[in-house]
């Protein structure tokens, strides 16, 4: 039996909103040691999502037997919208489940809402992702990255990211003209989450699909900062840290023909 109780429903609500536009169906893997993990690839096989919610993400967590819960994320999102962000949220499944029970509790108002979501058999490839060496790692405010990704998409379907030891440059080249945004590295000791940190082994110049970057920044409400790891001619990793877990996106770069 799985029983995972979140102190607030907001984490799960934000996680599902962050991934449901990229993948429609996915398997939730549940185990006592790892908590809940997800690996899902979008239909175009350009963007991969890796979610980890450790048992420490939950107020209470037990999973007697490893479970795979196949979910339609649009349906899950409809149910998660029924609860308030500050409600307790509990996910419950039997050992051989055909449905997932989702319970919201508002202890102050003595309100309990229960929903049952039908599960599906989902056949999906799992990709092996080893710890990668990277040429540079950038940590910046998640909102600042989201603004650049959203703004630059209006100019071009591609966004070039160039990193040097003291700045990150985002560049778009479109039919109406060009644009660039430079963010300089800075350390804000009063408010560390406002810092822009660049750890550079080698300068990087990579181009990504603006559409996918806009899918990634849907995770912005989950964390104050995002860490981006870039390597020449390899997928980039975008990480939003959660309390006791993470939501990572791996995005394949574009290449010149």
């Amino acid at each position: 039996m799985l029983e995972g109780k979140f102190e607030t429903a907001s984490t799960m609500k934000k996680v599902i909103e962050a991934i449901k536009d990229s993948v429609k169906l996915c398997n939730l893997n549940c185990s006592q040691n790892d908590g809940i993990t997800v690996q899902a690839i979008d239909d175009s096989r350009v963007l991969l999502i890796a979610l980890k919610l450790d048992p420490s993400c939950f107020q209470e967590f037990r999973c007697d037997k490893d479970l795979v819960l196949g979910l339609d994320l649009e349906s899950l999102s409809k149910i998660l919208r029924q609860g308030n962000p500050e409600d307790y949220l509990t996910l419950i499944a039997e050992d051989s489940p055909d449905s997932l029970l989702i319970v919201f509790e508002d202890s102050k108002k003595d309100r309990i809402s229960e929903f049952s979501l039908k599960l599906m058999d989902i056949d999906s490839d799992v990709l092996t992702i080893d710890e990668m060496e990277h040429d540079c790692a950038i940590t910046l405010p998640a909102a600042a990255f989201a603004k650049v990704a959203r703004d630059m998409k209006t100019l071009s379907e591609s966004l070039q990211i160039l990193v040097t030891k003291d700045s990150v440059k985002f560049k778009a080249d479109g039919s109406i003209g060009t644009g660039s945004v430079i963010l300089r590295a800075r350390t804000n000791l009063d408010d560390t989450k406002e810092s822009i940190l660049i750890d550079l082994n080698k300068p990087v110049n990579l181009t990504f699909g603006a559409k996918y970057l806009n899918d990634i920044v849907k995770a912005t409400p989950l964390a104050d900062t995002v860490t981006i790891k870039l390597t020449d001619k390899a997928p980039a990793m975008f990480e939003y840290k959660l309390q006791g877990g993470f939501l990572r996106y791996y995005l394949a770069p574009k290449f010149e023909d």
């Binding site: 096989r45 350009v46 990709l127 379907e157 591609s158 290449f255 023909d257």
Partner: peptide, 14 residues
């Protein structure tokens, strides 16, 4: 603006 690569060319199916 380049060709969009797929993850399959970087990561193997487990």
């Amino acid at each position: 603006t380049g060709t969009q690569e797929r993850l399959d060319s970087f990561f193997k199916v487990a």
